[in-house]
């Protein structure tokens, strides 16, 4: 529920001075691609703001989105984001269950009517009246329609909530759909990714709390600051692409030299996300830095877009074929050894 205290007071009580808040605002304006001059304004607005109620509903999902967002909290400065929101309903995290949980949801909606942010992770099954995913006897579709009606805005977190994701993949047995296919007349922000980059959610929340409106979105309702460029545009291997230097297999000399993974199926050129700049695991690295191409998980229908190892130019990955041959040789070798051993033992 909304606290009477301002965020400045809450943070002050917890030993965070205004310098911490200004530093957080500097980091957030940088993350949101806002002019640095806005940082003091953002810090001042955050200090005066009250905590914003967030109601989080999980539908047809794997909990990976929630898991990654929770893992982002410690010990980075993003931990402060949990002082800025009051997470009033989240089934996996809350202590209440059953009828108590249902009552908590009703109370949170009533107390913050028209002002709460609704966060959704997971797709919504609509086939056969939405019977394929129910909570407390209600379909996900029914809950979404009801709770979204009084929300200030809806945040579709993860590719499943944004576009249907893996549940929507062919043959889509449950009729899975994304939030924007089902809700109209409400501001919707899509934060796709499987899972999404946690800092993007922090950025969207902070922008909304400090300026009272959502950040600028692209034509797919994604925050432009994070999804305005492709992984390829920001990739540290991009110079090798420009020079025509491509790894041909996952263990050739090119791969060892860090050359571009385009021919091994990297979907970076058509994938919009902030992995290459914000990175993962506290800024440690991102998939391409670990030697694997981008699989395009933040784009609609990525699961049905062909093999992860087929290049965007259409060629099947030589690297994968070679690996297959190597695996085949390995299996054959192993089998021969096993047969040889068996012969010896008999």
């Amino acid at each position: 529920m909304e606290s009477a205290e301002t965020l400045g007071e809450v943070l002050g009580r917890r030993g965070f001075g205004r310098r911490s808040l200004l530093k957080f605002a500097i980091a957030m304006t940088s993350s949101l691609a806002l002019p640095p001059a806005l940082a003091p304004v953002m810090a001042a607005n955050l200090a005066k703001a009250k905590r914003r109620s967030v109601i989080w509903l999980s539908f047809q999902e794997c909990t990976g989105c929630l898991e990654t967002l929770l893992r982002s909290s410690s010990p980075s400065i993003e931990a402060l984001i949990f002082d800025f929101v009051s997470l009033d309903y989240q089934e996996s995290l809350m202590a209440a269950a059953g009828a108590d949980a249902e009552r908590t949801l009703r109370e949170a909606v009533a107390a913050n009517k028209g002002e709460y942010l609704l966060a959704i992770d997971g797709s919504i099954p609509v086939k056969d009246g939405g019977v394929y995913s129910m909570t407390g006897g209600r379909s996900n579709l029914g809950m979404l329609s009801e709770i979204a009606a009084d929300a200030k805005a809806v945040l579709a977190i993860g590719t499943c909530a944004a576009y249907g994701g893996i549940p929507k993949a062919y043959p889509n047995p449950t009729g899975a759909a994304g939030v924007e296919d089902l809700i109209s007349g409400k501001p919707i922000v899509n934060i796709p990714g499987c899972p999404p980059v946690p800092e993007v959610l922090s950025g969207v929340l902070v922008h909304f709390i400090s300026f009272g409106h959502l950040p600028e979105l692209d034509d797919r309702k994604r925050p432009l600051a994070y999804f305005g460029t492709t992984i390829h545009d920001q990739c540290y291997r991009r110079p090798f692409y420009d020079q025509g230097k491509f790894a041909k297999s996952f263990d050739d000399e090119g791969a060892r030299q860090g050359w571009c993974l385009f021919e091994l199926g990297c979907k970076g050129p058509v994938t919009h996300n902030a992995c290459a700049s914000l990175k993962w695991n506290g800024g440690t690295s991102f998939p391409i830095e670990s030697g694997h191409g981008c699989i395009g998980c933040s784009e609609p229908d990525f699961w049905d877009a062909g093999s992860f190892y087929t290049s965007l130019a259409g060629g099947s990955s030589a690297g994968w074929r070679n690996t297959g041959i190597a695996l085949g040789v390995g299996v054959a070798g192993g089998l021969a050894a096993a047969l040889s051993g068996r012969r010896k033992s008999t």
Partner: peptide, 9 residues
């Protein structure tokens, strides 16, 4: 940098 030493700005 943040508490983990990661550069944030």
């Amino acid at each position: 940098a943040d508490g983990a030493g990661r550069v944030i700005a």
